[in-house]
Amino acid sequence: MTGAHDQAGVLDGDPAAADGATAAAVRIEDVSVRFRARKTEVLALDDTTLRVGRGEFVAIAGPSGCGKSTLLKLAAGLLRPSSGTVSLFDSEVTGPRADIGYVFQRAALLEWRTARRNIAIQAEIRRMDTGAANRRIDELIEMTGLAGFEDAYPHELSGGMQQRVALCRALLHRPPVLLMDEPFGALDALTREQMNVELHRIWRETGTTILLVTHSIAEAVYLAGRVAVMSARPGRVIETLDIELPDQRDYAATMSDPAFAAATNRIRRLLGAEGGID
């Protein structure tokens, strides 16, 4: 997959403007995933369906081990479904897809590269034009507040800063869809809030479609336009909630918004673990 750079026109605009009438960014239909562990078969995902529209921010919330991460790996093509179909932008996913950005819970940085060169690996592997890539890196460093830390090695960076580097790396080629697997799960509460605010701003600024997996109900509701709630294993989407909050979300104001409370309560009830999760 080449030429992922220079789709800027489509992706940097207003998310609504880029929103095709019908084309879904991510379409997961009737997908089941079975893992064979020794002699027993584990059903990780059971007949799951999820659609994410272009420019949408969708969060997947669910208990541990419900197959949330499996869902993301399916979308990235890192995993093949046992049955059902997965497609990105109406082309079926048959192997690892390069037209995505992926962020793991751990930053997964190359410890021999500085922050800047960790971001640049995306450009190197894709053989992007060096000048354009460098300008894009400057832009992302500025956008994520990494300025001044470009030449630090990963071990010199805090968890939050490492995750910012991972985010820049995932955004470098302006992927039409960003898949995030509990990206802030390993951060302390304060850093996590800060990263939530920044991610929401980045989503508004770039218009990228984001599919985010989280086990934090508050994070899901604050960030997403829609939240897909999954059941415990075998995982399936039991309900999808539209979050009735404005696109421009102030963190403190959102936390005390009645719509926020209603949505988090609803999700808690769905998960059958009132107060037990998050």
Binding site: M1, A76, P96, I100, Y102, F104, A108, I121, I125, R126
Partner: peptide, 18 residues
Amino acid sequence: VDPEMLELAATMGAGPLQ
């Protein structure tokens, strides 16, 4: 090598040599 790093490389379209 970190297995997640290898998965990331796959999402970047990296070949075996890269």
